[in-house]
């Protein structure tokens, strides 16, 4: 195994009854890399994410995350990863500081350590003064930046971001990506899913999944060159749409 790889996936299959959600996936993610994980709704992304987060076991194949095996060491994996999504991030009716204490507690950090990290984090974000406000009263942009920082509280080596930026204003979105770049520079690996192809351009490498298969994996520059298009949006449409159309034709033939 390559020492620089923080995630390795070899011949990963995941079967639900007769349905194959993931078919022979093979990829590696390098330490400190920003890895974009793209695919249409229902392509099988969530299935893979769950396996990588230690929440589901593969049907077959070899998968390690942060050096731990996804069949045996799921608890160790959970301690070494952070997770944030737009849908679920913070408890709306708890205050900023209560959310931090709660998360820190779950990860087994001591109270003093939590408070030290909290002060550092909130001062950095410029929101120490409003630490006693409940989350529901914060603007969406602040919530997302806070949720991202919180996902790093226990110093994980990988962060999974599941559609993290939906609905935020473009200034906040750029600031959010600045935070992602800053985290990646400290060696944290970023594994991100998004439906928005301009964000795919921000990644070091992206994979595109169609019907449970990874059909492309490379840097955005290489993919655009390979498909002779100007944007990742066009790359994605070429790959994902071609497949959908064939499927539809097959269905109507039946």
């Amino acid at each position: 195994m390559n020492n620089d790889s923080i995630i390795t996936v070899k011949h990963l299959y995941k079967q639900f009854g007769s349905f194959t959600a993931n078919k022979d996936l093979n990829f590696e993610v390098k330490r400190g890399e920003i890895f974009g994980f793209l695919g249409a709704n229902g392509a099988g992304k969530t299935t893979t994410m769950k396996i990588l987060c230690g929440l589901s076991k593969p049907t077959s194949g070899e998968v390690t995350v942060a050096g731990f095996d996804v069949y045996q060491d799921t608890e160790k994996i959970k301690r070494n990863i952070g997770y944030m999504s737009q849908k679920f991030s913070l408890y709306e009716d708890l205050s900023v500081i209560e959310n931090i204490v709660f998360y820190g507690g779950i990860y087994g950090l001591g109270y003093k350590e939590i408070m030290r990290s909290a002060k550092e984090m909130l001062t950095g974000l410029g929101i120490w003064d409003i630490r006693k406000k409940v989350i529901a009263d914060l603007p969406l942009g602040w919530k997302q930046k806070l949720a991202f920082s919180l996902a790093m509280l226990h110093k994980p080596s990988i962060i999974f971001l599941d559609e993290p930026t939906g609905g935020v204003d473009p200034v906040t979105r750029r600031q959010f990506w600045d935070m992602i770049y800053a985290a990646a520079e400290t060696g944290i690996t970023i594994f991100v899913t998004t439906h928005y192809m301009d964000e795919a351009e921000y990644c070091d490498r992206v994979s595109i999944m169609v019907d449970g298969v990874i059909v492309a994996l490379d840097s955005p520059q290489q993919l655009k060159a390979q498909y002779q298009v100007k944007t990742m949006d066009e790359v994605f449409l070429k790959l994902a749409r071609a497949k959908t159309e064939t499927t539809n034709q097959n269905q109507s033939a039946l």
Binding site: A40, N41, G166, G167, H195, M197, L237, A240, R241
Partner: peptide, 9 residues
């Protein structure tokens, strides 16, 4: 919102 790029097109 929340719909993939192909379905959006």
């Amino acid at each position: 919102t929340g719909v993939d790029a192909v379905s959006r097109v």
